[in-house]
Design a protein around this nucleic acid. Sequence first.
RNA 1: CGAGGUGUAGCGUAGUCCGGUCAGCGCACCUGCUUUGGGAGCAGGGGGUCGCAGGUUCGAAUCCUGCCACCUCGACCA
Length: 490
Amino acid sequence: MAKGVTPKSEDYARWYTDVITKAEMADYGPVKGTMVIRPYGYGVWESIKEAFDKRFKETGHVNAYFPLFIPKSFLSREADHIEGFAKECAVVTHSRLKSAPDGNGVVVDPDSKLEEEIIVRPTSETVIWSMYKKWINSYRDLPILINQWANVVRWEMRTRLFLRTSEFLWQEGHTAHATEQEAREESIQMLDIYQEVLEQILAIPVLTGLKSEAERFAGAVDTYCIEAMMGDKRALQAGTSHYLGQNFAKAFDVKFQTENNTEELVYATSWGVSTRLVGALIMVHGDDKGLRLPPKVAPVQIVIIPIIKNDNSLDAIEKFLEPFLTELGEIGIRFKLDDRQKISPGFKFNEWEMKGVPIRVEVGPRDMEGGTLFCARRDTGEKKSYEIESAATELGQLLDEIQTNMFEQALKFRSENTFTVDNYDEFKKQINSGGFIRCGWDGNPDSEAAIKKETKATIRCILLNEKTKDKKCIYSENPAKHEVIFARAY
RNA sequence: CGAGGUGUAGCGUAGUCCGGUCAGCGCACCUGCUUUGGGAGCAGGGGGUCGCAGGUUCGAAUCCUGCCACCUCGACCA
């Protein structure tokens, strides 16, 4: 591992990829735009996944799996939907390869051309709704509350590790309801769960809101989102929850019989978060020493580094540590004893800091003499000795404190970089130095488009508890219809 | 998909203008000894069809032609 990463202040984009590759989170795949999620990065994703999955199940959802392949015709059923995804779909046209005539490798066998071409799912609304049509007959079949953990493919021109790759992992919930109200409540409920997991587990503060028409999901009536501020003050959409109305029910003719024996189209929602959250985690918490992981998602929460003086001192250290390690295990703390020989402690310190481990414990002769452990926390860099008898409990509490502190730090950063602005000149000036801008908008897509063209800033969300009284639109100066957050986004 | 740029060991690179001990350096890797409280030292060692394919030449990493890949900047996106 080469020393250090490019400082954030020097080149943020490079810092980001440096951290990912040096912390061994991910690597580039052989096909352009693809990414290998390495064990350490996948460990983080697993923690995130677990937190969401638990809450989905608590709210009555079940997991299922739908196919990767979608008939091309399905994509054309919902006009807006196809419009949104057509430009980035991978298409399967053939089913076979054969040896090349010149003997060099393989070529596509022209005889295997498919009658109907197959799309690799960019999202699963269409396959799922084709199945819901089969499964839904009466109001007694509703609601259907299904989630799937899957990979999807969106053929992207410009990709970045975790943030935008041609293939990514995500979770997509697809629900069907008898009434509009129930579906709307579902989409809000899932938005709340997203906010809860981001703030409590990933320690990332988010704004919740509604997308403008321009930013809305193709095929949705309303798109709700959670937006987070990254370390370079740009916005990142961290999750979305859509109220789909009856759009997909119409497209796939999904009707149900009501209690009164009438026929009605079902109401739908869909909602998703992706491995993009790992990217968010890196950008919100990372520093010039590398990753900083909130304890609740850290694959290793405490790393223990023995300071070895001679050949048999490792044995002595292990014996000294034994009761402490047992207790850590009992409390359920994920720890690792880094007993690699021939690697200097200093190297290990830097390596585990790069990997963002929340607490480092050093144990050497001095500690064994005094019955203590020397500990350093990653979030603040603070170092302190603990009595070994009580260390496990105290470090457990320290992990909670680190979790809270990291959220507070991120929240403070966002507050310091959120500005309320009421004239366009100030808006333009502010947007150039980054951050979120809170202001009025007349609701006209033309003003939104003009602002985007002139400043590259987009409406990240329409605030849910907006206050429009006496506000005017930042662009047109007409009375504001909405209070919104503008920012440059990923 | 438009405009620039770059391809030399796993990574980063020197050399390319001016063909001829130019295939070198740093990191990483392997072996041994000494080390170990903030990226250890010394000694030895392995690894490269110089992006690919042609061409010019006695001779090409170096010159010419074509292709491919990647990066940066613009339009589209979770």
